[in-house]
Design a binder for these strands. Structure first.
Length: 306
DNA sequence: AAGACGAAAGTGGTTGA
DNA sequence: TCAACAACTTTCGTCTT
């Protein structure tokens, strides 16, 4: 699947689709062309042979986002049934009985969880296949009895965040908390809970994942964004980043980059989109400039030029 | 007046005895 | 399990532009 469009910023044609983030970005200059893009091509991806095996199918798509996997039909309630003529009445009663048998607690819970998920994923602009993955993992969770004794919504929020982390989708805990209505701490708790019990491994967040999103929210030039990425990479090499919040690092790098490229944003503006305080931006900024010599030089040069 | 800076005190999470 | 600890937040006063 190759792109033939050229980047409007630098003319290079090395565009890269980033399905996870719903973005298209230019490899050369880092410009984000479309960050609300969702859903291209197949809705699932083969990550390993095992999950691919599970999801490969023919015929009507089997989907995890509907509790009966898209194959079922609701059978009407009693009042409706008794209005039917004799012959049909009997038939429908039998069907309803059958449906009641398969309507276990699990399915009822799934139904609730999945309608919640639908709401969440549309608010977060998640690609289809991510929604599917969340549904799949929640289904797994419920079959392992992880939901018992826990609030459905809370577990869903944990699974949502876990999948976002698995796929490097830069959404913060706060954002998940906001759309789910679950307290931030509980989201984090449930994230750990499901990760532990389902053996989901997640790496620490790479600050670079946040940069393109923050930069486009601030309407920063592509050059600034590239610069910020560069700064973060150097910072990682020097091991300045470990133990620090990735959001803070990304924010600090963006602040410096914007200063260097003469399109300075205030600490407050950056703090706002990065979802950290000004103080954190400040500390990160200070730490980065202290430890990375070339930044001091470039900042001085920028100041002299203006 | 707005922005940047930093001190002080409080919070929640991690770590190591 | 508890205490020490580092990072982050909130608040606020003071400098700088």
């Amino acid at each position: 699947m190759k792109e033939i469009i050229k980047c409007p910023e630098c003319g290079e044609s090395q565009l890269q689709r980033n399905k996870e983030k719903g973005e298209v970005l230019c490899k050369a200059c880092g410009l984000v062309l479309d960050d609300k893009m969702v859903d291209f091509g197949q809705e699932w991806k083969e990550y390993d042979s095992e999950s691919a095996e599970k999801r490969r199918r023919t015929g009507a798509p089997l989907t995890y986002t509907q509790d009966d996997r898209g194959l079922g039909t609701e059978i009407g309630r009693k009042q409706d049934i008794y209005r039917l003529a004799g012959k049909n009445k009997h038939k429908f009663q039998r069907l309803r009985l059958w449906q009641r048998r398969v309507s276990t607690a699990i399915e009822a819970n799934l139904r609730l969880a999945l309608s919640e998920l639908k709401r969440i994923s549309s608010l977060l602009n998640l690609p289809n296949y991510v929604e599917e993955e969340i549904a799949r993992i929640y289904t797994e969770a419920i079959h392992k009895g992880l939901v018992r004794g826990h609030s459905t919504e809370a577990v869903v929020s944990g699974v949502v965040y876990a999948v976002l982390r698995m796929y490097d989708i830069p959404r913060t805990l706060n954002e998940v908390s906001e759309v789910t209505g679950i307290d931030k701490k509980r989201v984090a708790k449930n994230f750990k809970y499901v990760s532990r019990n389902l053996n989901i491994r997640t790496l620490p967040i790479d600050p670079i994942n946040y940069i393109s999103r923050f930069a486009s929210e601030l309407a920063l030039d592509a050059k600034t964004q590239t610069k910020a990425v560069d700064i973060v990479q150097k910072a990682i090499q020097k091991e300045i980043t470990s133990g620090r919040s990735p959001k803070g690092i990304a924010a600090g790098a963006l602040y410096i980059a914007s200063k260097i490229n003469n399109e300075k944003k205030t600490q407050a503006e950056i703090a706002k989109v990065a979802d950290v305080t000004e103080v954190t931006v400040r500390n990160s900024y200070k730490e980065l400039t202290n430890r990375l010599d070339f930044l001091r030089i470039e900042l001085q040069a920028a100041q002299a030029a203006s």
